[in-house]
Computed example of a mutant assay.
Amino acid sequence: MTTAKTTTNRQDIERYIRVDHAGERAAQQIYRGQLVVLDKHPMGEEIRHMMAQEVEHLETFDSLINERRVRPSLLDPLWGAAGFALGVVTAAMGPKAAMACTIAVEEVIGEHYQKQAENLGEDEAELRTKIERFRDEELEHRDIAVDYKGREARHYKLLHDVIQTGCRTAIKIAEKI
């Protein structure tokens, strides 16, 4: 039997907010990059929907950074540029590749948010609720990408694995720097 954690370590909160802020910066830029190529494509409206949710997530973490006086990632501009480049490049490879990118990213982020939600204490119930909602929205994005045949992209497994490795590496770096 596990007992609920009552308090959350301040360093964990700072790490969660910093990395989530960086991740949401990259995520909204991925969709912005995809729209450069796929704006007029039939899936353009879905990409705009996903981007709007990512912008809301970023605004939430912007507020939390300020309210809780958490230092953002020193590499914040890099996360935005890398996300935009990833979005443009995968969209240029074709709509299925863009959706393969979304599947890969959102799977990692869904797992990441789930772990954070499980590690937050009772003192952070409000933050846990936000993170769980964001997790659900990220997994919705993954499901949209699956519906748009992202798993049928050329070289899907390679693309998926490379992007997930990049995401996991970026998470580790953003937690610290």
Rank of each mutant, 00 (worst) to 15 (best):
M50P: 03
G87K: 02
M99P: 13
P77M: 08
A98G: 11
I103V: 15
P72M: 06
L75S: 08
A52G: 10
V70I: 15
A82H: 11
V55H: 03
H57E: 04
V89L: 11
A82R: 12
I65G: 04
E67D: 12
N66H: 11
D76P: 01
K96T: 08
A82V: 12
M93A: 14
A92G: 14
G80H: 12
A97L: 02
E45F: 03
F61Y: 14
A81C: 02
H49I: 09
V88T: 03
E59F: 06
I65T: 10
A104V: 03
S63V: 05
D62N: 15
K96F: 02
A85E: 07
A85T: 15
A104K: 02
S63C: 07
T60Y: 08
W79A: 04
R71S: 09
L58C: 04
C101Y: 04
S73L: 04
S73M: 05
A81G: 12
A97Q: 05
W79D: 02
F84D: 09
P95W: 11
G80L: 12
E45Q: 15
A85I: 12
E67R: 15
A81Y: 06
V105A: 10
M50K: 01
V105C: 10
V70M: 05
A92C: 08
L78E: 04
L64I: 10
N66F: 00
E59A: 14
G80P: 08
L78A: 12
V108Y: 01
T90M: 09
E54M: 08
F84A: 01
I47R: 01
V55Q: 11
V70F: 00
A92T: 07
A91V: 05
M99I: 09
F61P: 04
A85Q: 06
A97D: 05
R48C: 05
L86G: 10
A92E: 05
I65L: 11
L64V: 09
A104I: 02
I65W: 00
A52S: 14
P72Y: 08
F84L: 11
A97N: 04
N66V: 12
V70R: 07
V105F: 05
F61W: 03
V105T: 11
A81I: 11
T102A: 13
G80Q: 13
K96S: 07
G87M: 05
L75P: 04
K96P: 02
T60E: 05
A82W: 10
E54S: 13
E56K: 15
A97G: 00
V55L: 10
R71F: 00
V70K: 07
V89Y: 11
A92H: 06
A92Y: 06
A82P: 07
H57T: 04
A81L: 15
A97C: 03
P95N: 07
M93W: 13
L58T: 08
G83H: 11
E107T: 09
M50Y: 01
R68D: 01
H49V: 09
A91T: 02
A52E: 13
D62Q: 15
L64E: 00
R71W: 00
K96A: 04
A85K: 09
T102N: 14
T102Y: 00
L86P: 02
R48K: 15
L74V: 08
I103W: 01
M50R: 01
R69M: 04
P77Q: 08
T102D: 08
A81Q: 09
E54C: 11
M50E: 01
E56F: 06
A98F: 04
E54F: 07
E107G: 06
N66R: 15
A85P: 07
F84K: 13
